[in-house]
Design a protein around this nucleic acid. Structure first.
Lengths: 143, 143
DNA sequence: GTAATATTGAGAAACTTTCTCAATAAGGAA
DNA sequence: TTCCTTATTGAGAAAGTTTCTCAATATTAC
C-alpha cells in the first residue's frame, strides 16, 4: 500500500505539504529534523509553514509512514518508513542512516526482562550508533 | 567509587546544586526532566536556578553519574546511575523505571548489523516500554 | 463545477534550552 | 582557621523549539 492509499484509507487528504514532505524524505538518506525539513523545502522554492511541518510529521509518523530516529545528541529526526518492523543504525559523523530488519532478535531479551522485572513489555526503542562505511574508511586513511 | 569521589577525581567541585540533584534523583524511582527537577527542589525549599539544573545534569550525565532515559513521548529524563552497563524498562502509565543489566544480549545482533550494513558500531540505545507490575495489576482489575 | 470540510498559513504564545557576567562559594595553601 | 584562586552559580536576557488560533485555502465527494 502506498502512502497515498494509506492516507486516503484513513480518511486524510493528500495535501501539498504532506506530499512535499514525503517526497523530500524519500530522497534523503539522513533523518531530518522539523527545522531542517522546513529549511530544505524553503530552499527548493516550496516554502511551508513550520506549523504545517510539525502537523504533517505528527500525522505521518502516527500512521507509520515515517519513522522517528534519535540523533546521538537526543534530537529527533524523521525518515521515510520502508515497511516492516525495523530499526536504524546511524553514522555519528555524517548522520547517514540505514535500516536493519527483524525484531525477533529482541524476543529472547524481552522475555528475560519481563521475567526479571515483572513489567509487561509491549514496545521498545533500539538504535545503533557508529560510523558508516565511507566515514570509517576516511578515518582509516587519516590514521 | 562514590559520586563525590568521581567528581573530585575529575577536578570538579562538590557544589550544592550538584549535591541536591544527586540526592533527589537517588530518592526517585521515575526519571525526571530538568523542569521537574527544578520544580521538585523549589517545593522542597531548595530553589535552584534552571540554568544550574541544566549545567549540572549535563556534567553528571557526561561523567556517567546519571543516565538519560527517553519517555515514550520522546522527552528526556534523568535517573541516578547505579553502575555497570544497563538499560531501562519504563512504565507508560506511572513512569516508574527499572534497570536491567547486561548488554551481552546485543552482541550477536550488533555483529549481524555490522556485517549487513558495513557500519562500525560503537554505541546503542535500548529501552523497553510497558506497564510496571502494579499498573498491570490495576489494569487487570478494571478489565 | 459546487458544496462541505479538512488542511494550511501566519503570527502569537507557550515552552525549552543556552548564554552572559557579576556575585558567590568550594577547595587548597598557609 | 583564614585567605586566595577560580570553578560555579543566579538572574534574566536571548535563542530556539513546539503548540495554538482562526480566517483563508485547497481537497474530495457528489
Amino acid at each position: 500500500m502506498t502512502w497515498h492509499e494509506e492516507l486516503t484509507k484513513q480518511g486524510y487528504r493528500i495535501s501539498g505539504p504532506r506530499r512535499r514532505i514525503m517526497e523530500l524524505l524519500s530522497d534523503t538518506r539522513t533523518p531530518l529534523t522539523p527545522a531542517l525539513i522546513h529549511k530544505h523545502l524553503a530552499l527548493e522554492g516550496k516554502p511551508l509553514s513550520l506549523a504545517s511541518v510539525y502537523r504533517a510529521l505528527d500525522l505521518l509518523a502516527e500512521l507509520n509512514l515515517l519513522c522517528q530516529v534519535y540523533f546521538s545528541d537526543g534530537t529527533l529526526g524523521y525518515m521515510a518508513h520502508t515497511g516492516g518492523h525495523h530499526h536504524h543504525v546511524l553514522c555519528r559523523r555524517c548522520n547517514r542512516s540505514m535500516e536493519f530488519g527483524g525484531h525477533e532478535d529482541l524476543d529472547e531479551l524481552t522475555e528475560r526482562v519481563q521475567a526479571e522485572t515483572g513489567y509487561v513489555i509491549n514496545e521498545h526503542l533500539l538504535q545503533f550508533y557508529g560510523l558508516c562505511p565511507s566515514c570509517a574508511a576516511l578515518r582509516q586513511e587519516l590514521a
